[in-house]
Structure formats: structure tokens, C-alpha cells
Nucleic acid binder design. Structure first.
Lengths: 345, 345
DNA sequence: TTGTACGCGTTATCAA
DNA sequence: TTGATAACGCGTACAA
């Protein structure tokens, strides 16, 4: 037999009003830090609030004021290292500004992403932050939010076409460039590239950086060494196997994430080649595994915590909570990247 | 000059009612899948909803029905591998049941945790899921939620004292036991232990498992080899340095997380000892790094995805959404653990 | 500086 | 099976 707990239904401003001998309007004023409240009155109200253990009902408040103080976040997968670090940062900063974070993951499904936009609209979040799926090339489902007055910030995976949304992205061009030109500087001539799918801006930009460095180094790109694929461990393994089975072998590989670079590194060790002597490898993301593997992996740091901070700063401007009167630029905010040199290249 | 976007203010059920020539009440019935709506009427409503691109205002709905369809989550840090995998699982399962996830991180601060309980109460979440801070020994701030009719589920780091909340925990006793008895089976006699702080149930239980295995193996516990500390890389390094600088040296170390085990492994390699020959090491959590490091790390798998699933299942029972009529047991639900044997032990 | 009265959009109750 | 009406708790225009 389950015991039925006695539920104290929550106090309202009416209770506080009664307890303090004031009107509900005054209570509301105190709660919202209105001017024109006598200090003594404020104190009386705060005492009553304390005594009754009153907590504002944000649902009712939101209905009236049209502000939920919740921010929606759509993300492909919470547990991807880079994403989880951005999210950690976003949540910490948002909380300081009095906003809550409502989190949705699309699992890289475009259909889920579309659904979640609707859900977040229904929830009347004050804004939406989104990192899109790998295959989102049409971003029009987000227009609905903006038309309804809900600002949208895209980060990491962002639209390449014109949009009214705010964009915050890593410097993927420079990341691709740094990785490649580092290899060239240390003497590589035959550089392979494991890229992500070009439907996604990230990999377009990294590829452009790769090409730029190759061109500057007067190196030819060998199409047999270029792979465009989802960046899984298995795919990378297949790719490197192919590359190393031909007559000509690359002397270096640039991979667009650390998972792929790790797959390469492990395969190469398995078949008895030495890294970096026989083959040099550069990854992307500075995943926690990259410092641990041996030889440790040279990779590109993306500063996820900084990205989270910039996202929230931009959001506060959009929501009019920023101290500064900054006008939003239409240009994307670009988060820097840095080559972390370790032993693999 | 920023251009002011034209904001279409959202349609309400009143608009839908007008467009379909029905009353708001009927629209609401359709939205909530009430019985007693004629099929033809339902169709008429759905058409109007479609035409107007209507989306229910969950804030208003929540005010009236006293259900926000949001679940609060309090977690020490989103980006810890284990936590982020549990969260991923929780979010995926919750979404299927039509609930949103509002996420807060305490950064292992008890004061933040207390604040967040209040915030989530104000938000009128339908339930709260919490993994507490390392130093939460008094859980009374959660009582407030339960008194207000908001059920609480603790997972991973749970209270050891009696509580009305639902508990879902890993089998930490067995994890500690498996790690230790494995070492004993392969011949270790002098086993050290790097434990977390005993304020936390996790480490109490793992320690008890350790002791049980030691006792069964007729092995003596050497107090100089027992460390109780926050499980950081640096702390573990200091600990192992101390252990290996004495006259007697352990032949194996059980660490309560993989970060500590990795710190041990790296230090031991630095000073020229061989793992597993000179020293055997077992970690805890099956962190992604543990398979990558060399030698690869023997560790304990905790099945975070399963834990997330069980959390949501328990929640649906508490919220009365479960198909089954299961009565909640008062016993904690225990998620199994498994020894992952690799090369370090 | 404070109080009165109304409305936000939805759902529940009751009556038809 | 459907409609009229009140209520959820709060914020704000307006009056005092």
C-alpha cells in the first residue's frame, strides 16, 4: 500500500499579499524590482515571501509577460566531446543571466530537428541555439521561429546561405590550413585527406584550408587520397587501408576529426609502420584521447568553452539584456583555432 | 540601422475556433485527444490547425493544467563522459514520451545545487532528476520539491539515508569487488586503492567491495596505500608517487575512476616500470581513453545508456504515464557493472 | 507610492 | 457530442 504524500499546494502572490497586508500588485513590483516601491514596503514583502517560502510561478509569469526565460538548444548529440563542452559552457553562462536551458538532440536526423523546432516553439522559448545535423542543407524550418519573434543562433554547423540568424562558427578554414601547412613545413609532399561530407560547412571550409595550403606549397592533390565520408572510426579504417594498398603511398594524412585520426593511427601501427617516421597524422578537435594515444596526436583545438561564452554573449544582445549597446554585426563571429603539436606530426 | 522584422503574433485556439466554426473547448479536446469528439469534427479542427499553422502555447496550457511537460535535471557537470552519456540517453527517452529536459549543472557546488532546486521549482517542472555533488550529504533541499508534489529521482550519487525519492544507482559494491578480485585472481598480493571522498555513496560502496574481495583473498589492507581524495589527474599522480617511494611497493592499484588510473599508468611508464608486469592497474568507468592508452586499461563498465533508460522508465511510473501498473519498489534500482579486461591487469 | 481590475491562452466544469 | 464560462497565477494600465 503506497502512502499518499500530503501535497502542500504552493503559495501565490495572493497569499503573500494577505500575509503582508499589501496588494498583489505591490508583491509583483517587488518581485520584478520595480522602482517606486518604498524601502519599508519592500522589506515587508520580502519578509512575507521568506516566511511563506514563496516561489514565483514562472509559468504564470511567462504567460503574462510572454517570456519563458528558457532557451532552447538543438544539438546533434549531447555526448560528443566538443558538443558537451560547448553545452557545459552555454549552460553555465546562461544560468548566470537567469535563463534556463532546454535541451534537445536531433541524433543527426533532419526530421527530428524539424520536430524539435516545433516543440521549442510550443514551449515558447525566448530563443533557440542550434548546431544542425550533418545533412541539414535547407534551414527553412528555423524561419518559422524567427517569424514568431524567436531569435535563432546557429553555431558550429551553420547555414552557408543568407539568413537572418546569428552565426558563430569555428575558424575551420584556418584549421584545415594550419593542419596541412604544418605537414608541409615538416617536409611532407604526399598528403592525404579524410574529410567529412561536403553537405556541411565545417568540412567545406576545412577542405578549402587544405587546398590553400597545398597550393601554397606547390603540392598536387591526389584524388585517390581524398575521402569524403561520415567521420566514423570504421570509415576511416577502410579509407586508410585503401590508401596504403596502392602503389603510391601518402607520407601524411589530415583527418577532419580525432576519431578518424585515431583509427588511422591504430591501423598504421597494426601493419607495422611507424608514426611519425613512415606516416604523419594530424587530427581535428583535440579530443581527450588525442593526448593519451601513443604517439600522441597533433590536432586542432577549437576552444569549445569560448564558443559557448560567445554564444551566450550574442544571445544577451539579441534579447536586449546586454549592458553594452552593441549592434549585432551581420558577419559570423569566428572562434579561433590552434594547432596543438604533439608527436604524430 | 537594424531592420525591424515583422512579427506575426501566434494564432490561438480562438483563431482556430473561429476558422473552423467551433468552440475553443472543442479545439482543446481535439488537441488533448479527448474521447467524445465526432470524427468529422476532429477532421475539421485539424484542417483549421493546419491551415493556420497553429501550435499550442504550452505555457498557457501548463498554467491551467498544472503540468509543464518539462523535467528538471541537476548534474555536477554535463561534459563528464559518464554524465553526458546518461544525459543523452535520458533526453532521447524523455522526448519519446513528450517531455522536455531542462538541464542545470551544479559544478559540484552544494550552494548551486540548492539554488537550482529553487529555480526548477519556480519553473514548475513535473519532476526532478538529480546526480548530486560530491559533498552533498544533506539532501533536505530536495524535500521541498517532494512536498510540493514534484517527484525526485536520484541517480549515480544518491543519498544513503532514508528518503521518499526514487533511487537508481550503479552496482558500485560489485564494481569495487570485481576490480579487486580480478587482481587477486591473477596473483596480486599487495593491492593499493585510490578512492574518491567517502562523503559520496559511490566511493563508500566501491571501497566496501574492495574490502570484501581483500578479505576473501586473505589479503591485508595496507593503510599507506589507501588514498581518499577527489579523483583528479594531479591528485592521482601525487598518490602514486608516494606509494612507489616507500620501501614496500604495491603490485597493483585499483583506482576509482579512469582519470586516476591513467595518471598512474603514465607516471609508472615515466619512471620505467612496466605495466602490467611490474604493476597492474584497474580503473573505473570505461572512459573512451581507456581503450586507447597503451597498455589499454582494464576497467569497469557502468552502462550509462541503460541507466538513462531506467531513469526515464521510473519517471514514467511516477508520473503515471507507464502502460504497466507497476507499483514503485522502495528499493533502489541497481544498474549492473562489468569488468572490461584489457592489458593493464 | 500603492491598489483595482483585467487579460494572457488554455483547460475543466457544467449545462445543453 | 458540443458550447459557455470560469479559473490557473501573474503583470500592468489606470486610478487613487
Amino acid at each position: 500500500m503506497a502512502k499518499i504524500p500530503k501535497i502542500e499546494s504552493a503559495n501565490t502572490i495572493l497569499h503573500v499579499a494577505e500575509a503582508s497586508g499589501l496588494s498583489p500588485a505591490t508583491i509583483s513590483r517587488v518581485l520584478n524590482n520595480h522602482p517606486y516601491v518604498k524601502e519599508a514596503t519592500r522589506k515587508r514583502v520580502l519578509d512575507a515571501i521568506e516566511k511563506l517560502n514563496y516561489h514565483r510561478n514562472n509559468i504564470a509569469s511567462g504567460l503574462r509577460s510572454n517570456k519563458s526565460h528558457a532557451i532552447g538548444l538543438i544539438v546533434p548529440r549531447i555526448s560528443m566531446t566538443f558538443q558537451s563542452e560547448v553545452i557545459t559552457s552555454i549552460q553555465n553562462h546562461l544560468y548566470k543571466h537567469g535563463y534556463n536551458l532546454m535541451i534537445c538532440q536531433s541524433n543527426d536526423s533532419l526530421q527530428m530537428e524539424r520536430e524539435m523546432v516545433k516543440t521549442l516553439h510550443s514551449t515558447r522559448v525566448d530563443a533557440v541555439i542550434a548546431a544542425c545535423t550533418l545533412n541539414t542543407t535547407d534551414f527553412s524550418h528555423f524561419d518559422f521561429l524567427m517569424k514568431s519573434g524567436i531569435p535563432v543562433i546557429f553555431y558550429d554547423r551553420v547555414p552557408t546561405t543568407k539568413t537572418a540568424a546569428t552565426l558563430i562558427k569555428g575558424d575551420d578554414f584556418r584549421g584545415g590550413y594550419l593542419a596541412t601547412s604544418h605537414l608541409i613545413e615538416i617536409g611532407c609532399k604526399n598528403i592525404a585527406h579524410i574529410s567529412g561530407p561536403l553537405s556541411c560547412n565545417l568540412y567545406q571550409d576545412r577542405l578549402a584550408g587544405f587546398k590553400k595550403a597545398m597550393q601554397q606549397g606547390n603540392l598536387k592533390i591526389n584524388d585517390k587520397w581524398m575521402f569524403y565520408q561520415e567521420l566514423t572510426y570504421e570509415n576511416a579504417r577502410v579509407a586508410v587501408k585503401k590508401m596504403l594498398s596502392g602503389n603510391e603511398r601518402p607520407d601524411a594524412i589530415v583527418a577532419d576529426n580525432d576519431t578518424s585520426a585515431i583509427a588511422v593511427l591504430e591501423y598504421v601501427k597494426e601493419i607495422g609502420l611507424k608514426v611519425p617516421n613512415d606516416l604523419k597524422i594530424v587530427g581535428y578537435s583535440n579530443d581527450s584521447r588525442s593526448a593519451i594515444i601513443s604517439p600522441s596526436l597533433t590536432t586542432i583545438e577549437q576552444f569549445p568553452a569560448l564558443m559557448g561564452q560567445k554564444i551566450v554573449e550574442a544571445l544577451m544582445v539579441l534579447l536586449g539584456n546586454s549592458g553594452t549597446n552593441t549592434t549585432m554585426t551581420q558577419e559570423p563571429t569566428v572562434i579561433p583555432v590552434q594547432l596543438i603539436r604533439r608527436l604524430s606530426a
